[in-house]
Every structure is written in structure tokens, then in C-alpha cells.
């Protein structure tokens, strides 16, 4: 497989945060195809110590946020993102990094990205479901391409100190942000074909130095 990054040595270990609401099988199988060893966990200490952590995302902002709180996963996630350690947040995961969301008024996100998540404006079809262009001005781990989305809410503008990819639906919204080894995608890299696999393997490569 052309995107497989682990040609020799022991497989990279990726810890996928179990948020209880998300269907995580797609994420686990995507990393398996890349030759990495991915497993689910809701152990705060494991999340603190893992070389790579994925915060996946399907579900409801309020329910997922509550689950992170109850399982004491909030602090280790906030810490590792603040320290710039390899962390990938997908879809709702990206939204959870922000301060709050119109989806669940009054519920606090992780607050590591100073922004609020809002809804798409009428009269667009919602959820924003399917493949859309992702445009990156300044390629890093993120590159331009086509990605699969399934989201009802979105980040409207680039948060300070993060580089961003944008996508157009009605207007332009922020479809991914990256800083150091922290990557957050509104789309699903695990469902975005060979392009998505390329992105996941670049993210793994990016973290190799620190892992």
C-alpha cells in the first residue's frame, strides 16, 4: 500500500479516544491499513502518555463533551494539545476543541481553540454531506484535495495562531486547522479515500520526531 508508513520496526501505536457516541471502526481500520496499531481507550493516563491520540467524532456536542468530563479525559487532552503533542481531532472532535457550539448552548468545549462553532445559514441542505474541496494556501501536514464531510455545524473563521484549510458551502468555512503536531479536521480523513490516507500518514510522520 502506497501510504503505508511503517515499513520496518515496531508499529506506531495510536490511541483512539472512546467518546461513547462515535462509531470508531472506520478510524481504527484506516490506521490498520497504514500499518499502525490503533486501539480504543477512555483511560486519562493512557491519553496523557500515548504518542498519538485521535479524538474521533460522530455524535452530539453536548453528549460528547459530558462524556469527556465524566471520564476525566478533558484535562489530559487539553494538556497534550497545549504542549503541541501529536493529536488528531476529527469532525465533532474538531468542534470539541473549541469554546462552545450552537448545537448545545451552555455546554463548554475543551477551549484549546479560541472560537465558537456555528450552524450553516439557510437555505443550504444540512447536514453538509458528501465530498467537497479542501483548499490549503500553505501546505504542511494539510494539503489541498477532496474530502468527505458529514457535518451540521462548522467553524466560520480561522482561529489566531492556527493555520487553516478552507471549504466552500454557501460561504467559506474552516475545514481543518493545524499547529505543530496537532491537526483538527471537520472532514473525515478516514473516509476520504487515498487523499485521506495520505493525510493520516503525513500526520503520523509529523509526530515521529517527538514520539
Amino acid at each position: 500500500m502506497k501510504n503505508e508508513i511503517n515499513k520496518a520496526g515496531s508499529p506506531l501505536e495510536v490511541l483512539v479516544v472512546s467518546t461513547g457516541t462515535a462509531n470508531t471502526a472506520s478510524v481504527l481500520s484506516a490506521f490498520a491499513r497504514l500499518g499502525a496499531k490503533a486501539r480504543l481507550s477512555d483511560e486519562p493516563s493512557a491519553i496523557r502518555d500515548a504518542d498519538y491520540v485521535v479524538l474521533p467524532g460522530v455524535g452530539d456536542f453536548g453528549a460528547a463533551s459530558m462524556r469527556l468530563e465524566q471520564s476525566r479525559m478533558r484535562e489530559p487532552l487539553v494538556d497534550r494539545i497545549a504542549e503541541g503533542r501529536s493529536t488528531l481531532a476529527i469532525c465533532l472532535g474538531m468542534q470539541l476543541l473549541c469554546d462552545n457550539s450552537e448545537e448545545s448552548p451552555g455546554v463548554k468545549g475543551l477551549g484549546v481553540v479560541p472560537a465558537a462553532i456555528g450552524s450553516f445559514s439557510e437555505p443550504l441542505r444540512v447536514p453538509h454531506m458528501g465530498w467537497n474541496r479542501v483548499d490549503v494556501e500553505d501546505p504542511g501536514v494539510l494539503e489541498s484535495g477532496c474530502a468527505y464531510f458529514a457535518n451540521g455545524y462548522r467553524l466560520a473563521s480561522r482561529p489566531p495562531s492556527w493555520s487553516a484549510a478552507t471549504t466552500s458551502y454557501g460561504g467559506t468555512f474552516v475545514s481543518a486547522i493545524e499547529r505543530g503536531a496537532v491537526l483538527a479536521c471537520q472532514f473525515h480523513p478516514e473516509l476520504s479515500g487515498a487523499w485521506g490516507e495520505g493525510l493520516l500518514s503525513r500526520w503520523l510522520e509529523r509526530g515521529r520526531g517527538q514520539a
Partner: peptide, 8 residues
């Protein structure tokens, strides 16, 4: 839908 989100 409440558990997994409408997109599911």
C-alpha cells in the same frame, strides 16, 4: 439520532 447524531 440523539445518540449518534443525525449524520449517522
Amino acid at each position: 439520532s440523539r445518540r449518534f447524531g443525525a449524520q449517522c
